[in-house]
Simulated assay, not measured.
Amino acid sequence: MFYEPDQGHGLPHNPFSAIVAPRPIGWISTRAADGSDNLAPYSFFNAVAYEPPQVMFASTSAKADRGDTKDSVANIRETGVFALNIVEYALREAMNRTSGPWLRGVDEFADAGLEKGTCRTIDCAYVAAAPAVLECKLTQIVQLDGAANFVVFGEVTGVHLRDNCIVDGVFDVTRFSPLARLGYTDYAAVHEVFSMARPEAD
């Protein structure tokens, strides 16, 4: 099969999100200028630089009560900060709950029964149970082609690691089974890890 995206694919559901998979999930927590908290997952997310450490996530739709975007991007525009919570398999139901189309001002932490932690370098809440959290200051928001496509970049200013995930000085992902997005309504959890050394120059 071959298709050109602007001509349509003819399938019951868009296959694009299933092709680039698995994708890590950026569970983004933000605080609006009025002090209300928001939490939402984004699967267009990744780390993009080491020094200084930087991450990105993309928001690709809009809400009627937010104009051209969603709550996360709107809050970051106001405050210039956000927290990136890593999602584990054990938190899958809570993560999914926070993906709902809730109205502006709804506290997804409370709605999903999640305890909040208080960030140290930014004014924001985070998921206290998350295996890792990255506190971030906005560096830039880039608008892509399309009415609601925004990529948010942030510099990491603080890192939380759950103590039981540190084993022999290493942040061990096998201690919490990271959750990843596949396509459609499908997800995957990391249960098997293997190592490979990079080749050295001849």
Rank of each mutant, 00 (worst) to 15 (best):
T79Q: 03
T79M: 08
T79N: 03
T79A: 03
T79I: 04
T79H: 05
G80S: 10
G80A: 07
G80C: 09
G80H: 09
V81M: 07
V81C: 13
V81Y: 14
F82Y: 13
F82W: 11
L84E: 01
L84Y: 09
L84W: 12
L84N: 12
N85W: 08
N85H: 11
N85Q: 10
V87P: 08
V87T: 13
V87M: 10
V87E: 05
V87C: 14
E88M: 06
E88T: 05
E88L: 00
E88H: 12
E88G: 15
Y89E: 15
Y89W: 07
Y89G: 04
Y89I: 00
Y89V: 02
Y89P: 00
A90I: 06
A90W: 06
A90H: 11
A90R: 15
A90Y: 07
L91K: 08
L91N: 13
L91Q: 15
R92I: 06
R92F: 08
E93R: 11
E93L: 12
E93Q: 13
A94P: 07
A94Y: 04
A94C: 10
A94R: 14
A94E: 12
M95N: 01
M95R: 02
M95E: 01
M95I: 00
N96A: 03
N96L: 07
N96M: 08
N96F: 00
N96K: 12
N96H: 12
R97A: 14
R97K: 15
T98N: 04
T98F: 02
T98C: 14
T98I: 01
T98E: 00
T98W: 00
S99T: 02
S99N: 04
S99Q: 02
G100N: 03
G100R: 10
G100M: 04
G100Q: 08
P101D: 14
P101A: 11
W102T: 04
W102P: 00
W102S: 01
W102V: 02
W102M: 05
W102N: 06
W102E: 04
L103C: 01
L103H: 14
L103T: 11
R104L: 10
R104G: 09
R104Q: 11
R104A: 11
G105K: 13
G105S: 13
G105M: 10
G105N: 13
G105C: 10
V106M: 07
V106L: 10
V106E: 06
V106W: 07
D107I: 04
D107T: 05
E108M: 08
E108V: 04
E108K: 13
